[in-house]
Each structure stands twice: as structure tokens, then as C-alpha cells.
Simulated assay, not measured.
Amino acid sequence: MSTNLDDPAALAEAAARTIRREAGIGTLDLAMVLGSGWSAAADDLGTVVHTFELADLPGFSAPVVAGHGGQLRIVETPNRRIAGVFTGRTHFYEGRGAVPVVHGVRTAAAVGATAIVLTNGCGSLNPDWGPGTPVLIADHINLTGASPLAGATFIDLTDAYSRRLRELAREVDPALPEGVYVQFRGPQYETPAEVRMAKVLGGDLVGMSTALETIAAREAGMEVLGISLATNLAAGISPTPLDHAEVIEAGQAAAPKLRSLLRGLAERL
């Protein structure tokens, strides 16, 4: 069957057909996208039913960022739900536009997922949220100047990040704080002045992913749980220069905490 590569919905359906056929599943119950520092936490979510290399699925390409895996794992969770776990993502700063960024979200929705957990590594504007602190996303500010939506597609983002799912996350870890995530375009890190601007606008976290995926997920009718891992203090707050190796190191150090959090979520979602 031919696929219109210019039609995002058709491309997501093509990927969904491949996933159903090769994994032997009818539907996904939920999906997870694991960002920088999170991939090491993917190993304790349940029984792996099938593993795909992302680059082998229609519309996907291999992740280009160190610290990201490159797979879609189909996992049966402890409560016998079927989850699609993406251990990598496409970033907007790769220059391919917003549609490839959200292809994983749209594919998960096409396979039937009704809830999605979007994670990332980010800079913290709050000195109390140092490296290794997971933070629930309560809302976002999209500073990319882009949207995955086209035409007169009006999506209500009043409750972009599900309050119900945040409450479930706090059943796993009652100490989880929450804040507003600000997505910049990247790939350069934010300047101290941009960090101050984000703070004035109401931001608590800064990064280069997640907001565009959330928009696409809400368009598809999915509930969204966003979780950031503070991997460093943002520019002008951090006493040292920013370095991507620091992001990887913070994720590795926090892996046991993140693994416990994700497993607890998988048992509840």
C-alpha cells in the first residue's frame, strides 16, 4: 500500500500498521517519550514484547543527540497495559520542521494510545531544583515560533498537561514539584538574558523539546503528563558553563530515581 509522504496523518497510520503487524498487538494503551537523561530508566517498565529501531519505521529517523536511545519498545506493564516507549525523539533544532518532531506522538495516537508521558532534560531556573530533580510540567510557553498544526486547527490548551495524571504521579512521589516549561528553538543554550526573560514570563524550566509534542498530543485527544529532569541550573544561575555532558551525567546519576518513577507510573496509567 502506497503512503502519501506529505500527509502527516497517512504517515502516522503507515507506522501504526507496521507496529501492529510486527509487534502482534491491536492497540497501545499509553506511550512514553524519553528525553535527555531518561533512556537509562526504560529498563524496568515491564515485559518487552517487541523492539523496533526507530529508523526502520515509516517517517522516523535515528536520533542525533547523545543520551537518547533510538528505539520504540512495546512493553506490557505490570498492570497488563501495552505501552509504546520511545527512547529517542526528533528535535525542532534539527531543522526538519515541526511535523517530524511530533511524528512519534501521532503514531502512538494512531495505534490507539490515549495517554502519553513526555519527558525531557532541562535547565532549572529555581536554585532549589538542582541537577537530578524531576519536576512535573504544569504548563508551557512555546517560544519556537512554530506549531505542528496547520490551517484553522483550533486546539484548546487550557489543560494541556493533565491534572489527573499529575495527581497519579504524586501517588508515586508525593514530593514532586511542578512548574512552567519554556521551549526555546535551540540548539544553542539560552543566554542569561533569555533565562531572565523566561523567568519574567512565568517560566521555571527551559529546554528544547516537549511543547510541540504536547500540542500534537492534545490535537489527537490524548492526555499528557510532562516531566522534566533538571539536569543543570540555567545560564546566569549556574556558576559554571553549560555542557551537554553535564546533562548526560545528571541523567545517569538520577537513573534509579527516574526508573522508580516511571515504573510507578506504568503501574498506574
Results as ranks from 00 to 15, higher is better:
residue 190 E to Q: 10
residue 218 R to Q: 10
residue 199 K to Q: 12
residue 176 L to I: 12
residue 206 V to Q: 00
residue 214 T to V: 10
residue 218 R to H: 09
residue 190 E to V: 05
residue 216 A to H: 04
residue 165 L to C: 07
residue 173 D to H: 03
residue 165 L to R: 09
residue 171 E to Q: 15
residue 193 A to C: 06
residue 172 V to N: 03
residue 175 A to Q: 12
residue 184 F to H: 07
residue 200 V to Q: 06
residue 164 R to D: 13
residue 213 E to L: 09
residue 161 Y to Q: 02
residue 196 R to W: 02
residue 180 V to A: 05
residue 187 P to G: 05
residue 161 Y to L: 03
residue 213 E to G: 11
residue 175 A to L: 07
residue 210 T to C: 04
residue 206 V to I: 11
residue 195 V to M: 08
residue 203 G to N: 07
residue 198 A to S: 15
residue 168 L to Q: 15
residue 219 E to H: 15
residue 162 S to Q: 11
residue 210 T to P: 03
residue 207 G to C: 04
residue 218 R to M: 08
residue 163 R to Q: 08
residue 169 A to F: 09
residue 192 P to I: 04
residue 216 A to P: 04
residue 214 T to F: 03
residue 218 R to L: 06
residue 188 Q to H: 14
residue 168 L to A: 15
residue 184 F to A: 08
residue 200 V to R: 10
residue 177 P to G: 00
residue 182 V to I: 11
residue 182 V to L: 01
residue 173 D to N: 08
residue 193 A to L: 10
residue 163 R to Y: 08
residue 189 Y to K: 04
residue 175 A to M: 06
residue 220 A to K: 13
residue 165 L to K: 07
residue 171 E to R: 14
residue 203 G to L: 08
residue 181 Y to V: 12
residue 198 A to D: 04
residue 174 P to F: 08
residue 172 V to H: 06
residue 196 R to S: 03
residue 178 E to V: 13
residue 171 E to G: 01
residue 184 F to Y: 15
residue 215 I to G: 01
residue 179 G to C: 12
residue 167 E to F: 12
residue 186 G to V: 10
residue 215 I to C: 04
residue 200 V to A: 04
residue 191 T to D: 14
residue 192 P to H: 14
residue 168 L to F: 03
residue 219 E to T: 01
residue 175 A to C: 02
residue 179 G to D: 08
residue 181 Y to N: 13
residue 169 A to Y: 09
residue 193 A to N: 09
residue 220 A to P: 02
residue 170 R to M: 11
residue 183 Q to D: 08
residue 161 Y to S: 05
residue 171 E to K: 11
residue 190 E to H: 07
residue 199 K to R: 15
residue 173 D to E: 14
residue 166 R to D: 15
residue 162 S to V: 09
residue 167 E to N: 13
residue 204 D to Q: 11
residue 204 D to A: 13
residue 161 Y to D: 07
residue 190 E to G: 08
residue 172 V to W: 09
residue 180 V to W: 01
residue 165 L to H: 05
residue 197 M to C: 14
residue 164 R to N: 10
residue 210 T to Y: 01
residue 176 L to F: 05
residue 177 P to S: 01
residue 211 A to F: 00
residue 220 A to C: 15
residue 195 V to T: 03
residue 161 Y to I: 03
residue 213 E to M: 11
residue 170 R to W: 14
residue 215 I to Q: 13
residue 189 Y to M: 13
residue 165 L to W: 10
residue 217 A to T: 02
residue 162 S to A: 10
residue 174 P to I: 06
residue 198 A to T: 12
residue 176 L to D: 08
